[in-house]
Amino acid sequence: MSRDDPFAGGVAPRLRRLDRGLAEAIRDAQCRDWTADRPDRVGFARLGQVRREVLTAAARYRVAPRVTDGPTVLAVAAAGLLVALPLLLLVPDPARPLPLAGIAVAAVWAAYAIRAGLRRLRIRRARHAADTPAPIDDPFLYAVTRRTIESCAASARADRSYRRRGAAADLEYALDWLSAAQDELPRLR
């Protein structure tokens, strides 16, 4: 079962994956618009509408949006392993109130510091990275998105619960916006 198979898995993970891909394409197109590399403020706005409808449909499947990002998770894990655990093992009788508070504060500060460092490092490394082609120009993105949305809508229409059947309507709006983003038909001037 390949990752790009639109019929792989249930509807909720498919919608989550779709949302992630769309968010990436939108952010990239927005950056290109900001830096006038590929000035087009309509395309990414319409993809944003697609993402909005997909998120509405995902909310009917109780897919919660992610609250943390990669560096945060990594920083918390690293602070727990590298700071809190050794301190707990080294400090004599760490269950007293004052030492435990000290260890907790040290871990929190370490987590903040590691997160800031990670973010700075990622940006610094990206400064010299080679530029890739824009995903918004990729016709395959639209084809895959359309197929995924259609298959999700088909599953949603056949669902037993009322709430999830409502997702089919949202996904049809998403399809409308997707074709508007691809063709960019009604544009003034």
């Binding site: 590399d37 706005a45 509408q49 940006i123 530029d131």
Partner: peptide, 29 residues
């Protein structure tokens, strides 16, 4: 950070910048 890969990272790394980008998206819509 004005090249595209770095700007993309900066948008996802800085909460204030992420909010500005979100508002820009809504305004464009």
């Amino acid at each position: 950070n004005w090249r595209v890969p770095a700007l993309r990272r900066a948008l996802s790394g800085d909460p204030a910048l992420a909010r500005i980008a979100e508002a820009d998206l809504l305004l464009c819509q």
